[in-house]
Design a protein around this nucleic acid. Structure first.
Lengths: 246, 246
DNA sequence: CGCCCAGTTGAGGACACTCAATAGCGGTGG
DNA sequence: CCACCGCTATTGAGTGTCCTCAACTGGGCG
């Protein structure tokens, strides 16, 4: 059983279900193969003698806050989280989204305080991995560093993609690009939309403009309402709009 | 003596002055202490048996191009470079600037092709370090990984800062923030401005808007012309403008 | 039932973009 | 030495997009 806690209080939660990686859950974790420890041999898990904490978050709850100094990094086992930064005037900007198997809080590994507010958009399940565990494992399994560097590179690619895709072009183009990125790439799956406010913070538009834009896409048949915030979208049309051909 | 070459032909330059790190230059490199190999002990340099190439670029020349697969990463010993990405419509966006002691092309370390066009803004001096060198060094000196991760984190912080600072607010605010970032933080140093086009590509504005904005800042005494593209700037006023108090 | 919050829609205006003309500067060649 | 060219920066006028402010709608929940 995991613990649900209030925003901003993760680093000292009242009581967390502590799990010893070497003995129980993580060894059989569903995402183990695609997550951080993929590639580690069974024997390597023996070397972990630190508690790996299991955390659950409800929407709007914070995993950590900017400038906090935490001794852990995190893997997201399920759900979607947003990373926030703030402008001098107080307005906020979403600089990245994280989903299954993504890693948060890597900056802890190099001794830096967290650079964002990390906040759940949906229900989330998270593993908190103390930095000391990584350091110990890394000493005997340098392959782990390769994996970590790959994670960093992935985050960097994401950041660059956001910069080029969500900060240029018309409102119509940006929203189309966002919908493409949110929608499942493999099929025309129903698509859960986040709040208009969050969408605006992702693409640098006001909630009104996002709302208007989505309404127009619906009117033109690019999006079709499926109830419960689900949308069916025409990815082909979205792609054309995203590229400015329309 | 270093070699100057045409844009886009770095990966197979005609003839490069090859330098063996273990024996000559890098061991006494001026930036060694603040660059990638800071922290390595003298003995560690013995383990390098691969050529480290020395490259010089003139403005507008490319170090590498997007999607190229290169076996090297780079440290910038002097000068300023830009990292470019492109939009579907062909317009380009500068996603980062690099200066003394910064590292480029880290993605080569995890086997990925380069993610940007890397182009010199000024005359640049660069060391090209084969990935194999890093791998060998890292095997015996895990501390190198810490340094590499710190570099990655720095790049990521930069990327996030660009996203929040240069893609929001009025043209006046963005240009002010850019000038603040370009100007030497310690003093009211003369400031070399890049071309308006490049500035526009950094902050997501057209050259005309950048030009108008800078002209207005001059009229208001925030910038003063010093000839030869040098500007004296009032950092205090810029800071107020950047924060929207104006 | 009525409150509250999120989303939608409308009207008006500000800001930055587009297109176009002009100015300034350095280089080249007659 | 001057005329000419090419390039960049500057400035202007007009337009379009998006923001602001405001009213209205509808669902969830006490």
């Amino acid at each position: 059983m995991t613990v649900r806690h209030k925003p901003g209080c993760l680093m000292k939660p009242i009581s967390l279900h502590e799990i010893w990686l070497g003995e129980t859950k993580c060894r059989h974790c569903a995402v183990r193969n695609s997550a951080l420890f993929a590639g580690l041999r069974e024997a390597d898990f023996r070397h972990i003698h630190q508690p790996i904490k299991d955390v659950a978050l409800a929407p709007e709850e914070a995993l950590y806050r900017m400038h906090e100094r935490g001794g852990a990094l995190f893997t997201l086992r399920g759900g979607v989280m947003k990373l926030l930064q703030y402008l001098p005037d107080g307005s906020q900007r979403i600089v990245r989204l994280l989903k299954d198997c993504d890693v948060l809080g890597l900056e802890a590994l190099v001794g830096q305080p967290y650079q964002h507010d990390a906040i759940a958009l949906t229900d989330c399940e998270i593993c908190a991995i103390p930095v000391s565990v990584i350091e110990r494992l890394g000493r005997e399994q340098p392959a782990l560093y390769l994996e970590l560097m790959a994670r960093w590179q992935q985050a960097l690619s994401e950041a660059d993609a956001w910069l080029t895709q969500f900060t240029t072009g018309t409102a119509r183009q940006r929203v189309a690009r966002l919908l493409l990125r949110l929608s499942c790439p493999d099929q025309n799956h129903p698509l859960p939309l986040f709040g208009r406010e969050d969408m605006g913070a992702m693409v640098g538009l006001t909630t009104e403009t996002v709302s208007r834009t989505i309404a127009e896409l619906r009117r033109q048949g690019v999006l079709r309402d499926r109830g419960a915030d689900l949308q069916e979208c025409n990815r082909e049309m979205l792609r054309r709009i995203a590229d400015g051909e329309d």
